[in-house]
């Protein structure tokens, strides 16, 4: 353990970053067997996500977006195919705390304050010993919650809860952040604001982000690329490059380029 750590520290960072993609999927297929028969949630997915990029996953309900994130996070094993996270098996990446996960309903523990929730990853799974850990208070400040450290989840609004869960996902300093419709339950104004802030977090941390959403605008505004998935069975429909200038700011969504891009995404989505 100690050996591998000192060894990996000697690899020049730039070389390692450019050589190994953050996520690599080769022919990934996931089938679920239930009483009603077998469902193919994902079929033959090939995907490469470079380090530090922001990929939006867009597709109709039931096309396997959550399943794809769960395979990458090692929450389920693929039926066939190969998944690599930072060049390793997802299980290894998970054990090394290279993966952060943000759930749709925030999944905060109601008996813990905001700060205690952010501390959870450091209390379990040997999280305290890692070198990439960040200061939980600074992370709460980063997501705009300084002063709310001692508030319980029921005292926070939905948007604030989701901010806490983002801080919690970042506390182990993950290289990859998986987000499953994190803002799906929020009103549009709050969602817009969190979108902009998420981009700031992404720019400041350099984390790779896989972001699942139902919203065409969210997908196009956030992602450097948008991966469109088709349903039954879940498969890659199209990988759309988003050529918008950065840093992205909300007014950009009214530009002709953006409107055209959103129109294209909508037309493809309708045929999925």
């Amino acid at each position: 353990m100690l050996n591998t750590m000192s060894f990996s520290a000697q690899i020049p960072l730039s070389l390692a970053a450019s050589a190994v993609p953050a996520v690599e999927c080769q022919g990934v297929t996931v089938r679920f067997t239930t009483e009603r028969g077998t469902v193919t949630a994902l079929e033959n997915i090939d995907l490469t996500v470079p380090q530090g990029s922001f990929l939006s996953l867009l597709g109709p309900s039931g096309c396997g977006k959550s399943t794809l994130l769960r395979v990458v996070a090692d929450l389920i094993a693929p039926t066939s195919g190969i998944v690599r996270v930072n060049g390793e098996a997802p299980e290894v990446a998970r054990q090394n705390r290279e993966i952060g996960f943000v759930f749709q309903d925030a999944a905060l523990l109601p008996w813990r304050t905001a700060l205690e929730n952010v501390l959870l990853p450091l209390e379990v799974g040997g999280g305290a010993r890692r070198s990439n850990n960040r200061d939980p208070r600074e992370l709460l400040a980063l997501v705009g919650l300084s002063g709310w450290e001692d508030a319980y989840p029921h005292e926070l609004s939905g948007g604030m809860r989701q901010r806490v869960s983002i801080a919690r996902a970042l506390v182990s300093g993950p290289k990859l952040l998986l987000m499953d419709e994190p803002f799906g339950a929020l009103d549009e104004i709050t969602r817009d604001r969190l979108n902009e802030e998420l981009l700031q977090v992404w720019e400041s941390t350099g984390t790779t982000i896989l972001f699942v959403t139902h919203s065409i605008y969210e997908a196009a505004f956030l992602g450097q690329e948008v991966l469109l998935l088709a349903a039954r069975p879940g498969r890659v429909r199209e990988l759309v490059d988003v050529n918008l200038p950065s840093p992205r700011r909300l007014p950009q969504r009214e530009t002709a380029e953006f409107v055209e891009l959103a129109g294209h995404l909508r037309r493809v989505l309708e045929t999925c």
Binding site: A73, R97, G100, F101, F103, D105, A107, L120, V124
Partner: peptide
Amino acid sequence: QALELMKVLSAS
């Protein structure tokens, strides 16, 4: 989802 969170965190 809290259980899945614990798994992502490799909790024992």
